[in-house]
Amino acid sequence: KIVFYEDKDFKGKSYDCKGDSVDLQSYIRRCNSLKVEGGWWVLYERSNFTGYQYVIGPGDYNAYHKWMGFNDCVRSCRIIKIRLFNRPNFGGQSIEVTDNMKSVPEQWQRNEVLSCKVLVGPWVFYEHPNFSGRQYLLEKGDYRHHTEWGALRSTVGSIKRVTQ
Rank of each mutant, 00 (worst) to 15 (best):
I2S: 08
I2G: 06
K11C: 12
K11L: 15
K11P: 07
G12I: 04
Y15K: 03
Y15C: 00
D16T: 02
K18V: 14
K18Q: 11
K18C: 13
S21E: 14
S21I: 12
S26R: 08
Y27N: 09
R29W: 15
R29E: 15
R30S: 11
R30K: 15
C31T: 15
N32W: 05
S33E: 03
L34G: 04
V36N: 05
G39P: 07
W41P: 05
Y44C: 12
S47N: 15
F49V: 01
T50G: 09
G51N: 09
G51A: 07
G51I: 04
G51E: 06
V55D: 03
P58S: 05
Y61S: 14
Y64D: 04
H65G: 05
H65S: 13
W67Y: 01
W67A: 12
D72Y: 08
C73Y: 14
V74D: 05
R75W: 14
S76T: 11
R78F: 05
I79N: 00
I79L: 08
I80F: 12
I80N: 07
R83E: 00
R83Q: 08
R83I: 08
N89T: 09
N89S: 01
F90R: 02
E96L: 11
T98E: 13
D99M: 07
M101T: 07
K102E: 15
V104I: 04
Q107K: 14
Q107M: 12
W108G: 00
W108I: 10
N111A: 05
N111G: 11
E112G: 07
L114D: 01
L114K: 13
C116R: 02
V118E: 08
V118W: 05
V120Q: 04
V120H: 10
G121F: 04
V124K: 05
F125L: 02
Y126I: 05
Y126M: 12
E127M: 14
N130V: 12
N130P: 12
F131L: 04
S132V: 06
G133D: 09
Q135A: 15
L137D: 08
L138Y: 07
E139Y: 04
E139S: 10
D142E: 01
Y143P: 01
H145Q: 11
H146V: 09
T147I: 14
E148F: 04
E148C: 07
W149R: 02
G150V: 00
L152S: 11
R153V: 06
V156R: 01
S158Y: 01
K160L: 06
K160M: 08
